[in-house]
Amino acid sequence: MPKTYERREFLADLAKIPCATLLLGVTGPLQALASEGGDYDPTEHYYAMGIQLDKCIGCGKCVQACKTENDVPEEPFYFRTWVERYIIYADGEVRVDSPEGGIKSFPPLEEEKQILRTFFVPKLCNHCDHPPCVQVCPVGATFKSQDGVVLVDSDYCIGCRYCIQACPYGARYLDPRSKTADKCTFCYHRITKGLLPACVEVCPTQARIFGELGKLSTPLNRMMRTSNIQVLKPHMNTEPKVFYSELDGEVR
């Protein structure tokens, strides 16, 4: 920001009545959401998600619910969340698949080889604390909100797709209708009203847990207390906020 701009703003504020200055400092976040009539304060929340992999049954309902809730294109090239199946055979071969993101569950296996381990891994945007996508956006169209959710400003995005390249998890895509980058928003429009994200809402086995960091009275806290917690690609230092328990070493 050029200093002249800030100075002008500051001078303009000073010229107003002092209580107006106070009001301006508080209005920012509230203005964004108070129009809905709520009193949601983003500075009081810091969202994260937990996924318990020993509970995922690979039904794909989360994938479907996400597409329904967020108006994601139906075609199997655009996913805000998806499920992967890992099959580790006794001879060491690893096979991974995600047919249409797992939206219609998975086809049966032709059981020719002996299986050592097999499981499902739901994936989504990790809403990293050090998001590489935010770092590379040339115009500031994607950002981490005050409540820890990485969002895209689709009215400002120029569609350069640098963020899609920079995401190590493949969580982003280009919406073919708006030609802007898009991805999971933790169902921001739901969580700011006290609802759960759609994927968490429909998960039949409660494999997905939604909650907040730094608070005790959240289901996420129990999971983080009692399980071994892993994140995807920790060596990238993105500090993901989607925490897995029972995450196998073969998962990328």
Partner: peptide
Amino acid sequence: AHLGHPERAFEIFLTPNPSSAMA
């Protein structure tokens, strides 16, 4: 020609993100 929104390209001049090499 490659941008999803070429008409917004000027935003790089308006609000360049200092952490982005592309800016």
